[in-house]
Protein backbone atom coordinates (compact mmCIF):
# COMPACT_ATOMS: atom_id res chain seq x y z
CA UNK A 1 0.00 0.00 0.00
CA UNK A 2 2.63 2.53 -1.03
CA UNK A 3 0.16 4.69 -2.91
CA UNK A 4 2.55 5.98 -5.51
CA UNK A 5 -0.12 6.49 -8.12
CA UNK A 6 -0.74 9.97 -9.40
CA UNK A 7 -4.13 11.59 -9.21
CA UNK A 8 -4.30 13.35 -12.54
CA UNK A 9 -7.53 15.18 -11.75
CA UNK A 10 -7.82 18.51 -10.03
CA UNK A 11 -5.42 21.42 -10.20
CA UNK A 12 -1.71 21.35 -9.49
CA UNK A 13 -0.46 23.16 -6.43
CA UNK A 14 0.80 26.26 -8.28
CA UNK A 15 -2.45 26.82 -10.15
CA UNK A 16 -4.48 26.32 -6.99
CA UNK A 17 -2.40 28.72 -4.94
CA UNK A 18 -2.51 31.29 -7.75
CA UNK A 19 -6.29 31.41 -7.32
CA UNK A 20 -5.90 32.06 -3.61
CA UNK A 21 -3.31 34.81 -4.16
CA UNK A 22 -5.48 36.44 -6.82
CA UNK A 23 -8.39 36.54 -4.38
CA UNK A 24 -6.13 38.17 -1.79
CA UNK A 25 -5.22 40.85 -4.32
CA UNK A 26 -1.54 39.91 -4.70
CA UNK A 27 -1.44 37.63 -7.74
CA UNK A 28 2.30 37.85 -8.36
CA UNK A 29 3.97 38.18 -5.00
CA UNK A 30 5.20 35.05 -3.25
CA UNK A 31 3.65 34.48 0.15
CA UNK A 32 5.27 36.57 2.84
CA UNK A 33 6.69 35.13 6.03
CA UNK A 34 4.03 35.97 8.57
CA UNK A 35 4.04 35.40 12.26
CA UNK A 36 0.75 34.29 13.76
CA UNK A 37 -1.01 36.47 16.33
CA UNK A 38 -0.21 36.07 20.00
CA UNK A 39 -2.81 34.56 22.26
CA UNK A 40 -3.85 36.81 25.10
CA UNK A 41 -3.82 34.27 27.91
CA UNK A 42 -5.74 36.56 30.25
CA UNK A 43 -8.62 36.02 27.85
CA UNK A 44 -8.18 32.42 26.77
CA UNK A 45 -6.74 30.55 29.75
CA UNK A 46 -9.17 28.60 31.93
CA UNK A 47 -6.71 26.79 34.22
CA UNK A 48 -3.17 27.51 35.37
CA UNK A 49 -0.34 25.58 37.01
CA UNK A 50 -1.31 27.06 40.37
CA UNK A 51 -4.68 25.32 40.33
CA UNK A 52 -5.09 22.01 42.12
CA UNK A 53 -4.85 20.07 38.86
CA UNK A 54 -5.87 16.69 40.24
CA UNK A 55 -8.98 18.10 41.89
CA UNK A 56 -9.89 20.17 38.85
CA UNK A 57 -9.33 17.26 36.47
CA UNK A 58 -11.44 14.92 38.61
CA UNK A 59 -14.27 17.43 38.85
CA UNK A 60 -14.35 18.18 35.12
CA UNK A 61 -13.99 14.55 34.08
CA UNK A 62 -16.93 13.67 36.31
CA UNK A 63 -18.98 16.52 34.87
CA UNK A 64 -18.24 15.13 31.41
CA UNK A 65 -19.81 11.82 32.39
CA UNK A 66 -16.77 9.73 33.33
CA UNK A 67 -16.53 7.69 36.54
CA UNK A 68 -13.49 8.97 38.41
CA UNK A 69 -11.57 7.36 41.29
CA UNK A 70 -8.39 8.70 42.87
CA UNK A 71 -5.65 6.52 44.28
CA UNK A 72 -1.91 6.55 45.10
CA UNK A 73 0.97 4.34 44.01
CA UNK A 74 0.72 2.49 47.30
CA UNK A 75 -2.98 1.69 46.95
CA UNK A 76 -3.06 1.32 43.16
CA UNK A 77 -2.94 -2.47 43.23
CA UNK A 78 -5.91 -2.73 45.59
CA UNK A 79 -7.99 -0.03 43.95
CA UNK A 80 -7.35 -1.37 40.46
CA UNK A 81 -8.34 -4.86 41.59
CA UNK A 82 -11.55 -3.47 43.07
CA UNK A 83 -12.34 -1.54 39.88
CA UNK A 84 -11.72 -4.58 37.69
CA UNK A 85 -13.77 -6.80 39.93
CA UNK A 86 -16.69 -4.40 39.71
CA UNK A 87 -16.44 -4.25 35.93
CA UNK A 88 -16.10 -8.05 35.68
CA UNK A 89 -14.74 -8.22 32.13
CA UNK A 90 -14.34 -11.55 30.34
CA UNK A 91 -11.77 -10.38 27.80
CA UNK A 92 -9.76 -7.14 27.84
CA UNK A 93 -7.45 -5.30 25.47
CA UNK A 94 -4.56 -3.45 27.08
CA UNK A 95 -2.71 -0.43 25.66
CA UNK A 96 -0.32 0.49 28.44
CA UNK A 97 3.38 1.28 27.94
CA UNK A 98 5.92 -1.31 29.08
CA UNK A 99 6.74 -0.95 32.76
CA UNK A 100 5.39 -1.53 36.23
CA UNK A 101 1.99 -0.01 35.47
CA UNK A 102 1.46 -2.49 32.67
CA UNK A 103 2.51 -5.38 34.92
CA UNK A 104 0.05 -4.23 37.59
CA UNK A 105 -2.77 -4.16 35.04
CA UNK A 106 -1.96 -7.60 33.64
CA UNK A 107 -1.69 -9.05 37.11
CA UNK A 108 -5.03 -7.49 38.10
CA UNK A 109 -6.69 -9.04 35.04
CA UNK A 110 -5.14 -12.43 35.77
CA UNK A 111 -6.43 -12.35 39.30
CA UNK A 112 -10.06 -11.96 38.21
CA UNK A 113 -9.60 -14.61 35.51
CA UNK A 114 -9.93 -12.16 32.64
CA UNK A 115 -7.96 -12.89 29.50
CA UNK A 116 -5.80 -10.16 27.98
CA UNK A 117 -6.27 -10.21 24.22
CA UNK A 118 -3.09 -9.88 22.17
CA UNK A 119 -4.45 -7.29 19.75
CA UNK A 120 -1.28 -7.39 17.64
CA UNK A 121 -2.29 -10.88 16.48
CA UNK A 122 -4.98 -9.46 14.17
CA UNK A 123 -4.77 -6.57 11.73
CA UNK A 124 -6.31 -3.16 12.30
CA UNK A 125 -8.83 -2.79 15.11
CA UNK A 126 -10.21 -6.28 14.58
CA UNK A 127 -9.09 -7.94 17.83
CA UNK A 128 -10.77 -5.20 19.84
CA UNK A 129 -14.25 -6.28 18.76
CA UNK A 130 -13.88 -9.35 20.98
CA UNK A 131 -13.08 -7.35 24.11
CA UNK A 132 -15.57 -6.07 26.67
CA UNK A 133 -12.99 -3.82 28.34
CA UNK A 134 -10.18 -1.61 27.07
CA UNK A 135 -7.47 -0.57 29.55
CA UNK A 136 -5.11 2.30 28.67
CA UNK A 137 -2.67 4.68 30.22
CA UNK A 138 -2.68 8.20 28.79
CA UNK A 139 -0.39 10.36 26.67
CA UNK A 140 -1.60 13.30 28.74
CA UNK A 141 -4.73 14.66 30.41
CA UNK A 142 -6.28 18.12 30.59
CA UNK A 143 -7.56 19.61 33.84
CA UNK A 144 -9.49 22.45 32.17
CA UNK A 145 -11.84 20.09 30.38
CA UNK A 146 -11.35 16.79 32.19
CA UNK A 147 -10.08 15.22 28.97
CA UNK A 148 -8.01 12.08 28.56
CA UNK A 149 -5.45 12.37 25.77
CA UNK A 150 -4.55 9.17 23.94
CA UNK A 151 -1.98 8.75 21.21
CA UNK A 152 -1.19 5.98 18.77
CA UNK A 153 2.17 4.17 18.71
CA UNK A 154 3.59 0.64 18.71
CA UNK A 155 2.06 -0.31 22.06
CA UNK A 156 -1.03 1.90 21.92
CA UNK A 157 -3.79 0.85 19.55
CA UNK A 158 -6.39 3.32 18.31
CA UNK A 159 -8.97 0.66 19.11
CA UNK A 160 -8.47 0.16 22.85
CA UNK A 161 -10.24 3.32 24.00
CA UNK A 162 -12.78 3.19 21.17
CA UNK A 163 -14.11 -0.28 20.35
CA UNK A 164 -14.82 -2.13 23.67
CA UNK A 165 -18.02 -1.06 25.47
CA UNK A 166 -16.09 0.00 28.59
CA UNK A 167 -12.84 2.00 28.80
CA UNK A 168 -10.65 2.15 31.91
CA UNK A 169 -7.91 4.80 31.85
CA UNK A 170 -5.01 5.14 34.28
CA UNK A 171 -3.91 8.75 34.75
CA UNK A 172 -0.71 9.65 36.66
CA UNK A 173 -1.10 13.11 38.20
CA UNK A 174 2.08 14.24 36.45
CA UNK A 175 0.45 13.73 33.07
CA UNK A 176 -2.25 16.34 33.74
CA UNK A 177 -1.80 19.60 31.82
CA UNK A 178 -3.62 22.59 33.24
CA UNK A 179 -5.12 24.09 30.09
CA UNK A 180 -5.59 23.13 26.44
CA UNK A 181 -3.06 25.89 25.76
CA UNK A 182 -0.48 23.87 27.70
CA UNK A 183 -1.34 20.60 25.99
CA UNK A 184 -1.28 22.06 22.50
CA UNK A 185 2.12 23.72 22.62
CA UNK A 186 4.22 22.35 19.78
CA UNK A 187 7.92 22.75 20.58
CA UNK A 188 9.98 24.77 18.10
CA UNK A 189 12.23 22.77 15.85
CA UNK A 190 10.14 19.59 15.96
CA UNK A 191 8.84 18.07 12.75
CA UNK A 192 5.24 16.96 12.19
CA UNK A 193 6.39 13.34 11.76
CA UNK A 194 7.56 13.39 15.39
CA UNK A 195 3.96 13.81 16.51
CA UNK A 196 1.93 10.63 16.93
CA UNK A 197 -0.20 9.94 13.85
CA UNK A 198 -3.32 10.19 15.98
CA UNK A 199 -3.78 12.21 19.16
CA UNK A 200 -7.29 11.90 20.55
CA UNK A 201 -8.84 13.94 23.35
CA UNK A 202 -11.57 11.89 24.99
CA UNK A 203 -14.03 13.86 27.12
CA UNK A 204 -16.70 11.48 28.34
CA UNK A 205 -18.43 8.37 27.00
CA UNK A 206 -19.49 8.21 23.35
CA UNK A 207 -22.84 9.96 23.07
CA UNK A 208 -25.56 11.20 20.77
CA UNK A 209 -28.70 13.29 21.01
CA UNK A 210 -29.72 12.87 17.39
CA UNK A 211 -33.08 11.23 18.09
CA UNK A 212 -35.39 13.93 19.47
CA UNK A 213 -32.55 15.43 21.46
CA UNK A 214 -32.55 12.55 23.96
CA UNK A 215 -29.07 11.87 25.35
CA UNK A 216 -27.83 8.30 24.85
CA UNK A 217 -24.33 7.02 25.64
CA UNK A 218 -22.40 4.32 23.87
CA UNK A 219 -23.53 5.00 20.34
CA UNK A 220 -20.35 3.89 18.56
CA UNK A 221 -17.62 4.09 21.19
CA UNK A 222 -17.74 3.07 24.87
CA UNK A 223 -20.85 3.68 26.95
CA UNK A 224 -18.75 3.88 30.14
CA UNK A 225 -15.40 5.53 30.79
CA UNK A 226 -13.71 4.87 34.14
CA UNK A 227 -10.70 6.89 35.24
CA UNK A 228 -8.20 6.00 37.95
CA UNK A 229 -6.05 9.01 38.89
CA UNK A 230 -2.75 8.17 40.59
CA UNK A 231 -2.07 11.20 42.78
CA UNK A 232 1.66 10.75 43.37
CA UNK A 233 2.76 9.34 40.01
CA UNK A 234 4.54 11.35 37.35
Amino acid sequence: MSGEFSVSVGLDRQAFMARVRAALGRPDSPPAAVSPPDIDESVARLAGPRDDLVALFCQRAQAAGMVVHATTSATLRVDLAAALEALAPRAACVSVAEGSLRETVLEGLRRIGCGAIDWRAKGGLEAHYDADLGVTDVWAAVAESGSLVLASDAVHSRGTFLVPPVHLALVPAGAIAADLLDLLAFPEGRTPAELPAAVVLVTGPSKTADIEGILITGVHGPREVHVLVIRDAV
Binding site: S145, S152, S157, P196, A197, V199, V200, L201, V202, T203
Partner: peptide, 27 residues
Protein backbone atom coordinates in the same frame (compact mmCIF):
# COMPACT_ATOMS: atom_id res chain seq x y z
CA UNK B 1 -22.52 24.21 19.00
CA UNK B 2 -24.11 22.00 21.65
CA UNK B 3 -23.46 23.71 25.00
CA UNK B 4 -20.81 21.13 25.90
CA UNK B 5 -17.41 22.01 27.36
CA UNK B 6 -15.71 19.84 24.73
CA UNK B 7 -16.86 17.39 22.10
CA UNK B 8 -16.37 13.84 23.38
CA UNK B 9 -13.79 13.00 20.71
CA UNK B 10 -11.36 15.60 19.40
CA UNK B 11 -8.99 13.82 17.05
CA UNK B 12 -5.77 15.31 15.71
CA UNK B 13 -4.48 13.32 12.73
CA UNK B 14 -0.97 14.04 11.48
CA UNK B 15 -0.20 11.93 8.45
CA UNK B 16 -0.69 8.17 7.98
CA UNK B 17 0.28 5.60 10.62
CA UNK B 18 3.93 5.57 11.62
CA UNK B 19 6.04 2.54 10.65
CA UNK B 20 5.91 1.09 14.17
CA UNK B 21 2.15 1.65 14.66
CA UNK B 22 -0.10 -1.38 14.72
CA UNK B 23 -3.16 0.32 13.25
CA UNK B 24 -4.35 3.42 11.43
CA UNK B 25 -4.53 4.05 7.69
CA UNK B 26 -1.45 3.52 5.55
CA UNK B 27 -2.49 6.42 3.35
Amino acid sequence: ATAQEQTVYTTIITGPRRPADHDGPGE
